[in-house]
Amino acid sequence: MAVATEPRPWTPDQPIIQLIDVHKSFGALEVLKGVSFSVKKGEVVCIIGPSGSGKSTLIRCINALVPVTSGTILVENIEVADPKLDKLALRRKVGMVFQQYNLFPHKTALQNVMMAPMHVLHQDRGEVEERARALMKKVRLTGKEHTYPGELSGGQQQRVAIARSLAMRPDVMLFDEVTAALDPETVKEVLFTIRELAEEGMTCMLVTHEMNFARDIADHVYFTDRGVIVEHGPPDTIFSAPRDPRTQEFLSQVL
């Protein structure tokens, strides 16, 4: 009887993220008006669009930071909108990096990376520390392990935030305008880290204003405006030959 609610076991050939007619309203304001798409494992997806088009809301819905009003979101066949959702199970699979880094200011960089695996997953301290040091190296912050977030630059903080998410060994990484708060010199180092991740086969979903980066890195680009996906396709098509007038107008403004 309970079988009906059991998720189908997920296999890598199925979409890792699937959205079906997702709506989200904040009071009278409808931010998402029926969004559907799917992301395959290892794919890098960029969401672009004007401010206030619902991009951030969309990405936050995927790890249940924002509850949807209606529709279905599946992450490895786990129904995110299910009120009985095991959030721990979902969030182990989905890592998220924020625009404002949101590191824990009272902990050093290394401790920031170690906290979740130790206290949420209750993994062995030594093992976690070893992995955290490896992740610090991966984001090229060796030597900054014992530095507090307040003493790091924006770009360094953001890379610690990426390492912190990776420490949970997620299957998907969500990036919510992660370079928007950075100054131009440090944008590069963060994008470099994301690119490395993408090249290693991590499934990545990025909300971004870095059009050149999106064009370069994405397998698929979605253009959203006023709560709907206006147009989507491979980056070359979207950036070189946009069909919809709204996409054309947006791109002419930002490129």
Partner: peptide, 25 residues
């Protein structure tokens, strides 16, 4: 509130977030 969000997305429970992340600050 972004501290709560960050903790939530790392799968901390509200109680863990309070005791390990919010109160120490």
């Amino acid at each position: 509130s972004t501290q709560w969000e960050a903790a939530e997305s790392l799968a901390f429970t509200p109680r863990q977030t309070m005791w390990r992340i919010i109160l120490p600050q």
